[in-house]
């Protein structure tokens, strides 16, 4: 009898200490993209400032490949102890598993919280005749099949385009120029190889500032604090928004306590003025959202994308 009590006590002590002591070693943050990309930068900034709020450091690892799924898989199959995190946004993680016919979906991972927002902007070259989004759509309707719109197939920019076509109720006939990656699309525009595209604001900003590119609309639900005079698509009468929200995921089955500790730490770090300053310098906006909101946002996004995929027959 005594033995059982001792064993039970020992177990309790161990169990509670395991949770109480989280984190005991460094936490790996998996970024499914290459270093220097926008996910990477926001993660590194946050990870660096996190040192004040968590006793153990966040270590960033870049695991690229397979449209970000390599990284996702790593976290999917990790031990559910809260030491492996994924940094992703819905435009990618909600879509990629469907398109690649993978055996998992975004909700096979455990969401922790949303952390950072970046803006998506619709841009045109500086000498383009389009002054706002309306001009673009008019031109497309007037001369279908001549305007060159650059997208990454099955990526966020593609879905933005499809969503716009949906909401306008018009089949926007354009020349779709495939260009994977924000940078590639900007380069293609600078080189005179495309007329309009959507990229993250951070990627476009240096060129907007230098005057080579003009923004015609923000694809967010509200105006960006970095470009206050650029109207959103909604303001211009097109009911399309894409909020580029980066969220943190971990492995399913991670104990709730661990998740709470993480979420709390993220919440604190997002309120930290230093973090805010560093993020805003790179055109990111701190935007903490708790688990329920995160799940809601992702579910909505996933539903939208799935319907777009079905409607436009993106996969058979």
């Amino acid at each position: 009898m005594r033995k059982i009590i001792v064993a039970a006590l020992a177990f309790l002590v161990m169990a509670s200490s395991a949770f109480a002591a989280y984190p005991e070693k460094s936490i790996q943050v998996v970024i499914p993209w290459g270093p220097g990309g926008s996910s990477d930068i926001s993660a590194r900034i946050v990870a660096d400032k996190m040192k004040k709020y968590l006793p153990q450091p966040l270590v960033i690892t870049n695991l690229t490949g397979a449209l970000g799924l390599n990284g996702a898989r790593q976290v999917l199959n990790a031990r559910p102890d809260g030491y492996t995190l994924l940094w992703e946004h819905p435009g990618n993680l909600a879509v990629a598993p469907i398109v690649t016919k993978s055996d998992f979906r975004w909700n096979d991972l455990e969401p922790v919280c949303t952390v950072v927002r970046s803006d998506m902007v619709m841009i045109v070259p500086k000498d383009s005749p389009f002054k706002n989004a309306g001009d673009v759509f008019e031109a497309i309707k007037k001369a279908p099949g001549t305007v060159r719109w650059s997208i990454a197939l099955n990526g966020v920019s593609h879905f933005a385009y499809l969503a716009m076509a949906e909401s306008l109720g018009v089949d926007l006939k354009v020349i779709l120029v495939p260009s994977p990656g924000d940078k590639a699309r900007v380069v293609s525009m600078l080189g005179g190889n495309c007329d309009v595209t959507c990229v993250s604001y951070a990627a476009a900003e240096p060129y907007i500032k230098s005057g080579d590119i003009r923004p015609v609309a923000m694809v967010n639900s509200q105006r960006s604090q970095f470009a206050k005079d650029v109207p959103t698509l909604i303001e211009q009468g097109v009911n399309v928004t894409y909020d580029y929200l980066c969220a943190v995921f971990t492995t399913k089955g991670t104990p709730d306590e661990v998740r709470e500790i993480l979420a709390e730490a993220f919440q604190k770090v997002m309120k930290d003025p230093e973090t805010i300053k560093a993020l805003e310098a790179q055109s990111f906006t701190p935007d903490f959202k708790d688990r329920e909101s995160t799940v809601k946002i992702w579910t909505e996004a996933a539903t939208l994308y799935e319907s777009l995929i079905k409607k436009y027959n993106l996969i058979k």
Partner: peptide, 12 residues
């Protein structure tokens, strides 16, 4: 990435 980590935007 190194530029951006230091808060510098590479561009024209």
């Amino acid at each position: 990435g190194a530029f951006m980590i230091h808060g510098i935007q590479p561009g024209p």
